[in-house]
Structure formats: C-alpha cells, structure tokens
C-alpha cells in the first residue's frame, strides 16, 4: 500500500501538470465529460448508484472544503447541514405538499440561518472552539431529528416524491446520476471561482496569519462566517437532492461518522485543492466498493491504506500548492 501511494503520487505529478496546461486541460475535460455521460450505459445500474453516491460526496466534500480547506476551520459536524437540507425538503414536500424546487431555496435559507446562529458567536473566539461546537451541533441535529414527530422520529421520513423538471420526471438511478453530475460540476466551478476571488484570498490570509490579516483591514470573524455559511449552503443543497434521490431519510444518514467520512475525503485528496478533494471523495466512496472481494476485512484494509496515505502524503494525494487554481 505504501508503494501504491508513492506510485500514485508519482503519476499524479505530471498528470496534474498536464491537466493545468491550456489545451491539455480542455482535452482532459472533454474526455472526462464524455466518460461521465457514458458511464451509466457502460457500467450498469449498480455501478451507477454507487457513482451517484460518489458524486454526492464530491458535492459535500467540496462544500466542507470551503470551511476546512480554504478558511482552515475544523468542522466536525458538517453532516448537520446535509441533514438540514434533507429534512427541510422532506418536511416541506410531505407535510406542506410543496413542490421540490420551491423547497430548495427554503433549505438554503434554513442552512444559512443555522450557519449564522452556530458560527456567529463561535467564530468570534480564537482557537478551536469551533471543532467542539460543531461536533455538538451535529449531534443535536441528529438527536432532534430522532425525537421530533415532524421529522418522523427514529424511522425518519419516507415517500418523498421524485421531482419533475420541465416535463422530465427525474426518477431512475440514471436520471439522478446525471443530476448529481451537474451538481458536482457546479460545486467545482463555484469552488474554483470562490478560491480565485477577494473572499477566497481573504480566507487564506486569515488562515495563515490572523493578526496580519486584521492589520490589512480584514474582518476575520466576518470572513470566517462567510466560509462557514457557504459550506452550510452547499451541504444543504447536497442534502436536498439526497432526500429526493432516496425518497426516504433517517437519522443514521447524518451521524458523526458521516461528518468524519466527508472530512476524510477533504483531507485525503489535499485540503484546498479542488481536484484533490474530488479524488478524496471518490476514494472514500469507491475504495470500500473496489475492495469488496476482501469480504469482512475490506474496511480494515481500507483504513490501513488511508493511514499510509496520511503518513506518506500528509498534505494529500494531489500535488501542489493548496490553493492552486
């Protein structure tokens, strides 16, 4: 596994160089989109479902990457925002009979408010209070969902209807696969644009040196809150589509281990690096699937592999500067 990690790293170097150059980049993107479009036809339904899950993880990991990778804030309860999005859609469609597309802005709004309420007071404090508070917030959201009738208690909500889009009933696994392709692409574009902006630079300034950033006129609390809320909104959008994809949601999907898996995807590929985070999300979802032949040992082998990657590539699998464009 150790040599695997090195081989991967050696391959990734020139590959990343090639991908970041003008024409190579366009060719690579064209091939990537062709492969993404063809995948469900080539791979069959089971693989399509797994890939859809991987793409959901790409969305969530890119969202968390804004918080952890860009702003350097440790969020241990990111699944809470995923839950906020999923339950907002579930409740409003089932209990209020609202159209899915109308519940989306509501999910975004609820996540933004939750982000401000949790992050606002906490981000004023220095150091790592955020890690503890977000850990608590994640558990509070899950336990609340388990205990309220409106969220369906422990059994959750089911029968969430699949949406229509201009006469297209998004219903089959293949339909949802394409929806998540669009979402993941959008999340990558949003990430890249944020990274290369006034706000994106401010996140790095604050992450590298809070005092120097303040001396340059940057309001560190406001800038961190912007990262936290942006991450919250992306997570909630992921959760909203997750809810209509499965049609049923329940508290275990939003556990602490879910938060950890998303965080692992971010750290594994390389915090702050968009291709790295995408790679990390793919590995976290596809790794255990590919190791399925190992039976009950697969998670152990997977965990050891992750540990070795952490040991030999502490800044993530993807090479280069943490905010390379």
């Amino acid at each position: 596994m150790a040599s695997d990690a090195r081989v991967l790293a050696r391959l990734a170097g020139p590959l990343a160089g090639f991908l970041s150059r003008g024409i190579g980049r366009w060719i690579a993107l064209a091939l990537l989109f062709a492969a993404m479009a063809a995948a469900p036809f080539v791979l069959g339904e089971y693989a399509t479902v797994i890939l859809t899950n991987a793409l959901l993880y790409v969305v969530l990991a890119l969202g968390l990457n804004v918080v952890v990778g860009y702003a350097g804030l440790l969020d241990l309860g990111y699944a809470a925002f995923f839950a906020v999005g999923a339950y907002t859609v579930g409740i409003l469609t089932l209990r209020a009979g609202m159209n899915f597309w109308l519940t989306l802005p509501a999910a975004v709004a609820v996540a933004a408010v939750a982000g401000v309420v949790v992050g606002g007071p906490t981000l004023r404090l220095r150091s790592d209070y955020l890690a503890i508070v977000t850990l608590g917030f994640g558990e509070i959201v899950r336990i609340t969902a388990r205990n309220l009738p409106i969220t369906g208690m422990a059994s959750g909500l089911s029968g969430i209807r699949q949406p229509w889009l201009f006469g297209w009933h998004i219903a089959t696994p293949r339909d949802f696969y394409y929806v998540f392709c669009v979402l993941a692409t959008a999340a990558a574009i949003v990430s890249a644009r944020l990274s290369d902006s006034r706000l994106g630079r401010a996140w790095l300034y604050v992450r590298y040196d809070e005092d120097a950033a303040e001396a340059m006129g940057i309001d560190r609390v406001r800038v961190k809150l912007a990262a936290y809320v942006t991450g919250a909104i992306i997570g909630a959008i992921g959760g909203a589509f997750f809810a209509v994809n499965l049609g049923a949601i329940s508290p275990p999907s939003f556990s602490f281990s879910q938060s950890v898996s998303i965080l692992m995807a971010v750290i594994l590929g390389g915090m702050g690096k968009i291709p790295g985070v995408i790679l990390g999300a793919m590995i976290v979802v596809l790794g255990p699937e590919l190791l399925r032949s190992l039976g009950e040992f697969r998670l152990l082998v997977f965990a050891i592999g992750l540990l070795l990657i952490m040991l030999f590539r502490p800044s993530g699998l993807w090479p280069g500067r943490s905010h390379a464009k």
Partner: peptide, 26 residues
C-alpha cells in the same frame, strides 16, 4: 502570508477598500 505570492500578499491591503462577496465571485 506564507505560500502566497508577493502580489497576492500585497493584494490583501486592498481588501478594506473593496466589497465583492461570495455572490459576486460565483
């Protein structure tokens, strides 16, 4: 600011004289 270029470092000074946020960037 480490890991950032000279230009990026100096660009930090303009933060308080400008206003674009997340929406503008996206």
């Amino acid at each position: 600011f480490r890991e950032m270029t000279v230009l990026e470092n100096v660009m930090s000074g303009m933060h308080c004289r400008t206003r674009a946020g997340a929406i503008g960037a996206i």
